[in-house]
Each structure stands twice: as structure tokens, then as C-alpha cells.
Computed example of a mutant assay.
Amino acid sequence: MSGTAMVVAIVFISVGFGVIFDMYKKHLEFKEKTLNHNSLHSEQVISMKQQIQTLEQRMQVLEKIVTDEGYDVSKEINKL
């Protein structure tokens, strides 16, 4: 192998490894962003579940109030 060919091969190998290394760094950055996004998403899901649970409890209270016989009586009184 001639000297020129060796220099060209070394340059190609160096550039190739540099490109591969940069691609690997970008891949790691993407995975980190994805993990951060997933943890944020998990926190939002937990918060929404708590809100739904609170709303369900409030709905149960409202259903008890509306189906209570005293509610019908007060409604009739208000009609008069």
C-alpha cells in the first residue's frame, strides 16, 4: 500500500469514527429527552387520576342530594 493510500484510509477512518461518535451522542441525547418526557407524562397521568377520583366523589355526593326525598320536598316548596 502506498503512502498516499494509507493517508487517505486514515482520514476516511478518522472521519467515519467521528461521524459514528456524533450519531451515538445524538442518540443518547434523544433517549434522555424521551425518558424525561415519559416521567413528566407519568406525573400528569397521576395528577389526572387524582382529579378524576375527586370528581367521582363529588358526583356521588350530588347524586345523593338529588335522589334524597328532602330535595323533592324543597323543590315542591319552591314551586309554590
Rank of each mutant, 00 (worst) to 15 (best):
Q57W: 12
S39A: 11
K31T: 07
V61Y: 14
L55T: 09
Q51W: 06
Q44A: 08
L55V: 11
L40H: 03
M48H: 07
Q60R: 13
L62F: 10
S42N: 07
Q60D: 15
E29A: 09
L35A: 09
N38C: 02
E63M: 06
E56M: 14
L55C: 13
H37T: 01
T34K: 06
Q51H: 11
K64W: 10
E63L: 05
I52K: 14
I65K: 14
M59E: 13
I52R: 14
Q53V: 06
Q50V: 08
V45Q: 03
V61H: 12
K49Q: 11
T54C: 08
V45F: 00
S42I: 01
L35P: 00
I65M: 14
S47T: 07
M48C: 07
T34W: 01
Q50M: 15
H41P: 00
M59S: 13
N36E: 11
V45C: 04
V45T: 08
E56Y: 10
V66S: 08
Q50G: 10
E43F: 00
K33T: 03
L40P: 00
L40M: 05
L55E: 14
H41G: 01
F30I: 06
K31Q: 15
K64T: 13
Q50K: 15
Q51M: 08
E56C: 13
V45N: 04
Q50P: 01
S47R: 09
L62A: 10
T54Y: 09
L55F: 09
N38D: 08
N36Y: 04
K31R: 15
Q50H: 11
I46W: 01
V66H: 09
V61N: 13
K31P: 01
L40T: 01
Q60A: 15
E32D: 12
H41N: 03
Q57V: 13
S39R: 10
E63N: 08
S42C: 02
S47W: 03
Q57A: 14
Q44W: 06
I46G: 02
E32G: 04
Q53Y: 08
E63H: 07
F30M: 10
E43L: 02
K49C: 03
M48Q: 10
T34H: 01
Q60K: 15
E32A: 09
H41R: 11
Q53N: 12
S47H: 09
S42G: 01
Q57E: 15
S39T: 06
Q51P: 00
L40A: 05
Q51F: 04
E63G: 02
K64M: 13
L40I: 02
H41L: 06
Q57P: 02
Q44H: 10
S47F: 04
E29L: 05
M59V: 08
M48A: 11
L62H: 08
F30P: 00
Q51C: 07
Q50N: 12
K33S: 04
I46Y: 01
S47L: 11
Q50A: 09
V61E: 14
S39W: 04
I65N: 10
K49E: 07
T54I: 13
K31Y: 04
K49M: 06
S47P: 00
K49T: 05
I46E: 03
M48L: 09
V66R: 13
Q44M: 08
L55D: 12
H41E: 05
I46L: 04
T54E: 12
K33Y: 02
Q60P: 01
S39G: 02
L35V: 02
Q51V: 06
S42V: 01
M59K: 14
E56G: 12
I46S: 05
E29N: 10
Q51T: 09
E32P: 00
